[in-house]
Design a protein around this nucleic acid. Structure first.
Lengths: 205, 205, 205, 205
DNA sequence: TATGAATGAGTGTTCATTCAT
DNA sequence: AATGAATGAACACTCATTCAT
């Protein structure tokens, strides 16, 4: 279980690097085109123009392939999202973060949706810092100057980060599914909900 | 495609009604316990104490079974949600609607999550008025007295309904996945985001 | 691992019983004809005139099938061997035991040889009392009247039983491989070695 | 069939000799560590620190590798066994022969067991004089002074050699499998059976 | 000469679905 | 109406072997 999700061997020759790339891109395309039910290793290999044996030389299992795709897709996304941390205030950073997320999602919406669902699988959760890295990012943003007073508490901050992430994910997935293409408009609407969430008074219990 | 998703025959005898109920409840339990990957017709029949042949007498395909389960789960939910239409103002109705959704989701969170995902399948979308019924409901709520002025436009109302639904779904699924149990607290947080969304000024383009 | 080797479901209808029998006999024939390397589930199903799905309805894995075959082959053999316990003296019982073994082995020599090898697999050892039942039998025989004095010690008895079993197995497998057909002659030669073994003075250390 | 089992090319350079040795030793280790089911060419090459291509430069097939290993393991063994021919009497030579066998087997028991089984494969039998060489040796021993009178007949001598070899193989494999380490004690027990076999009167038919 | 990337037939196994009883 | 035996296409994965570099 531990190494069953790791890449099997690092490609050394240039040809091999190209093959791995082709396999990952093929995986993305199959997932987009045929959904989870059409996502099988034979189809991925075929679309990559590789043999099934080649696929398994680099990925020890179907799950390892999926995970590698997840990581690849999160890569650039996470870097862009991290850059928002340089902004001084909570509101600025959050707004920028939302824009980054919306753009990412509308880029390849079908793919993003399916990968979002895969990220929730417990075995992936374990092998992945991804989701949690995004949450950590959001927590850092909520710790910046100008954050609502009631978010001083770490526990509340944690919950707020989870809520905001979920809200964003829900809205972006839905927008992607409906074929929206204007990321900035989507970001604006998400921002409305997110800032509404932050500015609301906490519930009195 | 036309009848492949319809129930095969209406159960006439009381015993048959009971069998169908048992099959649906078994389907729900298998889905909750073993997830999508453990959800297969043999397992459902076994858990229902019925034979696989019996299952196929009432459901012409696995998809028909899934769809029937979806409808069953939406039934009570939809009724409770409809009741909120009796409330006079938009804010009251929306608040009540959110409470209903949160309670529904936290009732059987795992099941609700998986069914939410199934609802997105294109073939189900087509055969299902469900999702759209909820959207229609929400549109009706947004047409009540006290709704933001910028939602006069039908197209904007449509978009807002989709956004709010997505936002709620994202937050409830996430809360359910984290094991939250306090539906009213969850509803309060969702409300914060939802009303924030509604009260925000529309984007100037 | 625990139930992966057990039969999956007991056949209820007469047709099913027949199918299971056919599968086991097909397994035996494939093993005899094509050896371990030709022994695969598809070949077994094909020879049984069944589909691969049917095979897996009764045997949850290839190993379960192999194990079931092992048990089937040991069944009659073990019963006949047990009957030798009714004989009064150690020498009579052992002689009879050897005859039973020789006959069993020369009956389907190729099959017996391959099954002997399978019996040594650790996972089968665990799931099987078989081999040990034979050893227990032999130990009981060595405890009868007329057994050599130096076999009073339980540990020595144990070792002697293992040695005799191994000796018999080696000689019968070899005879079977060479195509011998005269079980009584083989038994006579085995007896010579076995009684020589028993009558020899233990080593002075 | 003719050259598929032969070594592909004799290693000329010293480096190549070393490579072949490393491959054979790696084969032995893989066989010991992981059994027949873990014994594959990729694993052997990896353990030898060579590439799969290199392996196939020296061994045209997996079987050729196995066969070469068999020959290597028999080499020293056969030489030691041959030396017993210098002893004058049948009993002395046989006793010495047994000791040599026991020591060989307990040296690397797991390996010896698996190679014993491979030796029985028909295609190996054909390509191998090994087994028969040992039988020839034993026949020579049985022709020495002091051999039982009833072994004058060549056919009987042949059968006795086969029986004794099988008996020894059975007992040594079993002892090795049980983890025995005292080769001399094992040899003593084998001797008891072997001499018992020789001294017994032939069966009257 | 050595490498390791690539191949693809083959194997174990699952599961939706049918149909004789 | 209910059963459960049977089917077989489909899929994950392995491994002996080849060949361009």
């Amino acid at each position: 279980m531990s190494d069953a999700l790791q890449i099997r061997k690092a490609p050394r020759q240039r040809r091999a690097v190209h093959t791995v790339d082709a396999l990952l891109e093929a995986a993305a395309q199959v997932l987009e085109a045929d959904g989870l039910e059409g996502f099988n290793t034979n189809a991925v290999a075929r679309r990559a123009g590789a043999s099934i044996g080649t696929l398994y030389q680099y990925f020890p299992s179907k799950d390892a392939l999926t995970l590698a795709l997840l990581l690849r897709e999160d890569q650039a996304f996470h870097e862009a999202a991290s850059a928002t941390l340089t902004l001084p205030t909570c509101r600025e950073a959050l707004a920028a973060f939302i824009v980054v997320c919306a753009r990412q999602q509308l880029n390849r919406p079908q793919l993003a949706l399916l990968l979002d669902q895969q990220e929730d699988r417990p075995d992936f959760r374990a092998a992945l810092h991804g989701k949690f890295r995004f949450r950590a990012l959001l927590i850092a943003i909520l710790s910046k100057a100008g954050a609502p007073a009631h978010l001083q508490d770490d526990q509340r901050k944690d919950l707020a980060a989870a809520d905001l992430l979920a809200l964003m994910r829900g809205m972006t997935d839905s927008a992607g599914g409906r074929g929206e293409r204007d990321a900035d408009d989507l970001a604006h609407r998400i921002g409305a909900a997110a800032f509404g969430y932050l500015d609301a008074a906490p519930r009195q219990m």
